[in-house]
Lab assay of single mutants.
Amino acid sequence: PAHPYDRLKTTSTDPVSDIDVTRREAYLSSEEFKEKFGMTKEAFYKLPKWKQNKFKMAVQLF
Rank of each mutant, 00 (worst) to 15 (best):
P1K: 14
A2W: 15
H3V: 11
H3C: 15
H3M: 08
H3P: 07
H3F: 15
H3D: 04
P4N: 07
P4A: 10
P4D: 08
Y5T: 03
Y5H: 07
Y5S: 07
D6C: 12
D6M: 00
D6F: 01
D6P: 03
R7Q: 08
L8K: 05
L8Q: 04
L8N: 05
K9Q: 11
K9Y: 06
K9T: 13
K9G: 07
K9V: 12
K9M: 12
K9S: 10
T10Y: 12
T10M: 07
T10K: 03
T11M: 04
T11E: 09
T11G: 10
T11L: 03
S12K: 05
S12I: 02
S12E: 04
S12G: 04
S12H: 04
S12V: 03
S12M: 03
S12Q: 04
T13Q: 13
T13Y: 07
D14Q: 06
D14I: 06
D14G: 04
P15K: 04
P15A: 05
P15G: 07
P15W: 02
V16Y: 06
V16C: 10
V16N: 01
S17L: 15
S17F: 14
S17A: 14
S17C: 15
D18W: 04
D18T: 07
D18K: 05
I19N: 07
I19P: 03
I19C: 11
D20R: 04
D20M: 07
D20H: 05
D20K: 04
V21C: 12
V21K: 07
V21L: 05
V21R: 08
V21I: 13
T22C: 14
T22Y: 09
R23E: 04
R24H: 09
R24T: 11
R24L: 13
R24N: 05
R24C: 12
E25M: 09
E25W: 05
E25I: 09
E25N: 04
E25A: 06
A26R: 07
A26K: 08
A26C: 13
Y27V: 03
Y27I: 03
Y27G: 04
Y27T: 04
Y27F: 02
Y27C: 11
Y27S: 05
Y27A: 04
Y27P: 06
L28D: 02
L28S: 02
S29M: 02
S29H: 08
S30Y: 12
S30K: 12
S30P: 14
S30N: 15
E31Q: 12
E32C: 11
E32P: 01
E32M: 07
E32V: 05
F33N: 00
F33T: 01
F33W: 01
F33R: 00
F33L: 01
F33D: 01
K34Q: 15
K34I: 14
K34Y: 15
K34M: 15
E35T: 10
E35Y: 09
E35K: 07
E35M: 11
E35A: 11
K36T: 15
K36F: 12
K36N: 02
F37L: 09
F37W: 02
M39I: 06
M39Q: 02
M39G: 00
T40N: 11
T40E: 08
K41M: 10
K41D: 02
K41I: 10
K41A: 08
E42T: 10
A43F: 11
A43K: 11
A43M: 13
A43I: 11
A43G: 05
F44D: 00
F44I: 00
F44M: 01
F44P: 00
F44C: 01
Y45M: 03
K46T: 11
L47Y: 07
L47E: 01
L47F: 05
L47R: 00
P48V: 01
P48D: 04
P48S: 03
K49C: 14
K49S: 08
W50K: 04
W50Y: 09
W50R: 03
K51L: 15
K51S: 06
Q52G: 00
Q52S: 01
N53V: 13
N53F: 09
N53R: 11
K54D: 10
K54V: 14
K54S: 13
F55D: 01
F55T: 04
F55V: 10
K56H: 02
M57Q: 11
M57T: 06
M57R: 14
A58M: 14
V59G: 01
V59Y: 12
V59N: 10
V59T: 07
V59Q: 10
Q60T: 05
L61D: 07
F62A: 15
F62Q: 14
F62R: 14
F62N: 15
